[in-house]
Computed example of a mutant assay.
Amino acid sequence: MLNWLILAAAIVAEVIGTTCLKMSGGLSRFWPVTGMIVFYGASFVGLALALRSIDMSVAYAIWSGLGVALITVVGVFGFGEAFTIARAVCIVLILLGVIGLNLAQS
């Protein structure tokens, strides 16, 4: 159970790191770049720790899939990016794939 919480924290750290990357202005702003490095580092450490007991395919699918879904929400609400039906369908497909891989693990 702890490794699932670590994976969840790694996903949140990845989303924060990606948000910092967006805010960095092409890596030209010190604090967002610093945040990006710290949070991406924390994300990879968390993913590595979660891989101790979660299958690699499942952990990576969850980490990347939920990261994409969450960063889409951040982009839409935080940066005014468009949210189209096509994007919504693709996010649902990603989430279905993550669920499918998780169910196939059993």
Rank of each mutant, 00 (worst) to 15 (best):
L49C: 09
V33Y: 05
A104R: 14
I91P: 00
V33M: 09
N102H: 14
W4E: 01
S64D: 02
A61S: 12
I71S: 14
I54W: 13
G78M: 03
L5I: 13
I37R: 07
L47N: 10
I6Q: 03
T72W: 00
L2W: 04
F30E: 01
T34R: 00
L70P: 00
L2M: 03
W31T: 09
I99P: 06
V73F: 00
A10E: 10
C90T: 10
G65K: 08
I62Y: 01
G100L: 11
V58Q: 01
I11T: 12
E81Y: 06
G26A: 11
S28D: 05
V68T: 14
M36P: 04
N3P: 04
A10I: 08
G35R: 06
D55T: 06
F79M: 04
I16A: 13
L51Q: 15
S53A: 14
F39K: 11
I91Y: 02
G65L: 11
A42C: 15
I6V: 13
I11G: 12
I91S: 00
L66E: 02
A82M: 12
L95A: 05
W4S: 05
G46A: 13
G35F: 04
G25I: 08
G78N: 02
C90G: 08
Y60L: 14
T18W: 08
L70Y: 00
D55M: 02
V76A: 02
T84I: 09
L96F: 14
L2G: 00
A86I: 01
F39W: 10
I11V: 15
V15G: 09
V92K: 01
L93S: 13
A82F: 03
L7Q: 03
I11S: 13
V33L: 07
F30G: 02
A59I: 02
V38T: 04
V98A: 04
A48M: 11
A8I: 13
V92E: 01
S43H: 10
G26K: 06
S24M: 12
L7H: 05
